[in-house]
Design a protein around this nucleic acid. Structure first.
Lengths: 251, 251
DNA sequence: TATAAACCTTTACGTTACGTCAATGTCAAG
DNA sequence: CTTGACATTGACGTAACGTAAAGGTTTATA
């Protein structure tokens, strides 16, 4: 039985372009071609193609598929396990990313309390119903942070916000001659880290660096520090970087 | 302070090519250029660039980053949560892939027992130590399957293999006039599914379809069925597909 | 001050796995 | 014989740069 390119394509669920491309790169050439230049495939081609598509489904690049299938001593199971590991690495990376995003979201909320005083005004009426959870997301850290915040009285909230502002003020400093690695500044960074952990969420020192970067990168945070002193955001970032470095060393 | 392209690149940890590219696509243009054509950046450029890199780190495509940063009403938190969801979808996809790979690996082992009688010969001396686990992978399904298999006596193993062979034989059939959707054949497919679940691993009917496809796609499995009858592999695949369809309908 | 090292510029091709025309040739059916 | 479905090759486009190539500019040093 002889199949045209379209028949094979339809049987396998790919386009004819794909088949021509596979022919072009030598991954799957038709066993015979007519004098008219037509590609004629057979059932063996279909099996080969399905084999190719099986690996393609697993995100194996075509070059590797060619390597795999051209080697007669090819070990399918080993290849699969290798690929499985690659997939796990990807998952790990993505999970790290998700965590970063979560922490960033939480950090945004935390920081905004210092700037946007009205931010939590409607919070007391806030119900943890389905719609709300959908709207606010249900990341553990964030929910935890919000629950804790909600239990506080207005005075407590005000006190915390003020405390954050004070530390920030001392951290950025009023003396322009201070360098980011000055012990005075470094102490305040540590204070601020403790403040975050006490009042909002527990996080690793490493995360403080991301936070510091974000304060500089996002103008809405940067303005907090720029108000205190010109170049304040960049100053905080450098101070935070130094602090995180020292934390890492001291472990 | 005026920065050259290299200075900015080094400060941000990117190449100059990246900066020229960002200039080219209009994502980040230098605030001024000298008469010599040199690009001169400033500290604001650095902040913008870091903002861009922040999103790039999260795998947001540059076009979206441009959209995001150009809109003044841009909601960072909402964007992050949206992106978080996209990441979760990716993770889910990858996990499905991993599961498929695991099941495929397990299926290969299961099938090979019928063909390669010596495959499990060295298995009794097999120790579940660190090296072994690394070599064989530690997928739940596979380990579980192996543990169960290991507990069996030689006679039991032989009996199971033989039983698999018998069902397969009946499934492929000796009467060439039978169609894949013949009730006789369908009953045998059901038997084989039960056989798999009893003796190797529990799996969904849907997975049987993948399995059937693989038997055809991989010559080393296909040969099992081709030995019984020419076109046997394709026959089994069609029979399995019909069976899975019917299972899906009957739910 | 001459010269070399380092840095800058634009131009342009290569990467993956095809999608999408465009222009044209071939086959089967009515 | 026409029409429509299908075939061919060729070529450009995609995302985000890497990597030369060919040449101009700045800076440091001898």
């Amino acid at each position: 039985m002889r199949y045209t390119i379209k028949q094979i394509a339809d049987l396998a669920g790919v386009t004819t372009r794909t088949l021509r491309y596979y022919d072009q790169i030598g991954l799957l050439s038709p066993p015979q071609t007519g004098g008219n230049g037509y590609r004629y495939y057979d059932r063996g081609s279909l099996l080969q193609l399905q084999q190719i598509l099986f690996f393609r489904e697993l995100d194996v690049p075509l070059k590797e598929i060619e390597m795999i299938l051209s080697r007669p001593d090819f070990d399918l199971r080993q290849a699969l396990e290798q690929h499985r590991q690659a997939l796990e690495v990807q998952v790990a990376k993505l999970n790290t990313l998700i965590e970063t995003v979560d922490q960033t979201i939480a950090a945004i909320e935390g920081e905004w309390t210092m700037n946007d005083k009205d931010y939590f005004e409607g919070f007391d009426e806030f119900k943890y119903d389905e719609e709300a959870r959908q709207r606010w997301g249900d990341t553990d850290m964030y929910v935890q942070s919000m629950r804790r915040w909600k239990r506080l009285t207005e005075e407590q909230k005000e006190a915390i916000k003020q405390k954050g502002g004070e530390i920030t003020l001392r951290m950025v400093g009023t003396d322009p001659s201070l360098k980011p690695d000055d012990p005075t500044v470094q102490t305040e960074v540590g204070e601020y880290f403790a403040y975050l952990n006490e009042n909002f969420y527990t996080c690793e020192p490493e995360f403080l660096r991301n936070l510091g970067d974000m304060w500089v990168e996002d103008p809405r945070f940067a303005v907090n520090y720029e108000c205190i002193r010109e170049g304040g955001a960049e100053f905080v970032r450098q101070a935070v970087h130094v602090w995180v470095e020292n934390q890492a060393k001291s472990i």
